[in-house]
Amino acid sequence: MNEPTHHTTYHGPVINQNGDQNTGTIHYGTAGATQDAELRSAVEALTAELRRISAHLTPDQAETVEETLPVLALDRAEMAERGLTLARLGQIAAVVGPMAQPVADALGRLLGLLGP
């Protein structure tokens, strides 16, 4: 009996199961592999800053961050198309205050790389 192939929704692991013994492989995809080094660095910096302030977020703010994180795994063009989604992180940084200034700076750098 063959097991189905499972695909995640946003460039996450793909699990292929074959045969009666359920042996298979996990392919972790190429999310970010085609990004240039500067963009990848900006994404990593923003993600690190979001982790740093996560304990200080309200549940609604934390949910917004979680909903936005998959956008950071996209390529440059797809990320640029979702600029308004990323801008929601700027609103959170403004509410959290001075502690979140590094988030705002990292987000500004990333949005600057994505262009107008």
Rank of each mutant, 00 (worst) to 15 (best):
T25M: 08
G90C: 02
T85W: 00
Q91W: 05
L46K: 03
T64H: 13
S41G: 02
L74K: 13
P102E: 01
N2V: 14
A94L: 05
L111D: 01
V95F: 05
P98Y: 05
L46C: 06
T30L: 09
P59D: 15
T47K: 10
Y10P: 00
M1L: 12
A80P: 01
H27A: 12
S41R: 15
R76L: 10
P116R: 11
A100I: 02
G29N: 04
R88N: 00
D20C: 12
N16V: 11
L69M: 15
Q101D: 13
H27V: 11
A106R: 00
P70Y: 02
A55E: 14
L114W: 05
R109W: 03
A93K: 00
P4H: 07
I15Y: 10
Y10S: 04
P59A: 15
L110I: 10
A100P: 00
T5F: 05
N16Q: 10
E38D: 08
I15D: 04
A48L: 03
D105C: 02
T34W: 05
G29S: 01
E67R: 13
G90W: 04
L86R: 07
T85R: 12
A87S: 14
Q35V: 04
Q101C: 01
R88Q: 06
G112Y: 06
D75Y: 09
G83M: 08
A45D: 08
T58Q: 13
A42H: 03
D105P: 02
I92D: 04
M79G: 13
G12R: 01
A45Y: 02
L86D: 13
L89D: 07
E49R: 10
G83L: 01
T25K: 00
Q91P: 00
H56R: 13
V14M: 09
E3Y: 13
E67N: 14
T23M: 11
T58D: 08
R40H: 06
V14F: 02
Q61E: 15
Y28F: 15
H11C: 10
A33F: 10
A37Y: 07
L84R: 15
P116I: 04
H6V: 14
V96C: 09
T47G: 06
M1Y: 08
E81H: 11
M99F: 11
G112I: 09
Q91Y: 12
T5P: 02
